[in-house]
Computed example of a mutant assay.
Amino acid sequence: MSTDAGQACRFFVSYTGVKLPLRLVTAIAPEQLSNRNTFIRGYFDAAGVLTGFEKIVYGEIELTHSYSYHASGALSRAEIVMLHEDPVTLNFDETGAPIAGQDASVKEAS
């Protein structure tokens, strides 16, 4: 995942939640990254909406989430990629509810 034009990249200690999109918590300044083994690199559109993130562990991307939204602002699609696993794509209806047969809960990783 890379920043597209109009996207801002900010850094965080972790994320929280079991419902998508996950919430990034405890912002950190870029100059603090050299002191961290693990951090989250979050991407935001011009309106400040989270479009995705990467969990960095010892310099490697361990987990990525990419989000897209309906015009209403509700989550439309989430793509989740974990290191050494196949990507998972979840689709959501206009209200942000998972489309039948999908589980939109994500276990929180440490």
Rank of each mutant, 00 (worst) to 15 (best):
L20F: 08
A29Y: 14
R41Q: 15
D86P: 04
I56S: 01
E62W: 09
A47N: 13
F11T: 04
S14R: 10
R77I: 08
Y58L: 11
T26Y: 10
L50F: 01
E79P: 01
G48P: 13
E62C: 04
V88E: 14
A27S: 12
Y58V: 01
K19P: 01
S66D: 03
V88T: 13
G73F: 13
I40W: 05
L83T: 11
G48R: 09
L75C: 08
V13T: 13
G48C: 09
F53A: 03
K55W: 11
D45P: 10
I61T: 15
T64A: 09
T38P: 00
V88R: 15
T26M: 07
L83N: 11
T26H: 10
A78I: 11
L20W: 09
H84D: 15
A78Q: 06
A74E: 13
R36T: 02
R77G: 06
P30M: 11
R36F: 13
S76T: 03
A46I: 09
F11Y: 15
A46Y: 02
V88W: 14
G73S: 12
A47Q: 15
Y58S: 13
P30Y: 07
G73E: 14
L33Y: 12
G42R: 04
D45W: 12
G52N: 05
S14H: 10
E31S: 09
E62P: 00
T16I: 02
A78D: 09
G73L: 12
F53E: 05
E79R: 14
S72L: 09
V49C: 02
G17I: 03
Y58G: 06
L75N: 06
P87R: 12
E62D: 14
S14P: 00
P21A: 01
E31G: 02
R36M: 12
I40Y: 05
I40C: 06
R36A: 14
L83M: 14
R41T: 14
S76E: 03
L24C: 07
V25W: 05
L20A: 08
N35G: 04
E60C: 06
F53S: 00
E60T: 08
P30V: 13
A29V: 09
G42D: 03
N37W: 08
V18I: 08
H70T: 06
Y69D: 03
S66H: 12
Q32F: 01
L63V: 06
G42Q: 03
M82I: 06
A47C: 05
P87D: 10
N37K: 15
V88H: 10
V57W: 00
I61M: 00
E79D: 01
N37P: 00
S76H: 08
E31K: 10
T38R: 15
A27L: 13
F12K: 01
K55M: 06
V88M: 13
A74K: 15
H84A: 06
S66P: 03
R77N: 10
S68H: 00
A27E: 15
F11G: 03
S14C: 04
E60R: 11
V13Q: 12
E31L: 02
S66Y: 04
F11N: 01
D86R: 09
Y15C: 02
N37S: 14
L50M: 08
V49R: 15
S76R: 10
L33A: 11
V88I: 15
G48Y: 05
L50S: 02
V18T: 12
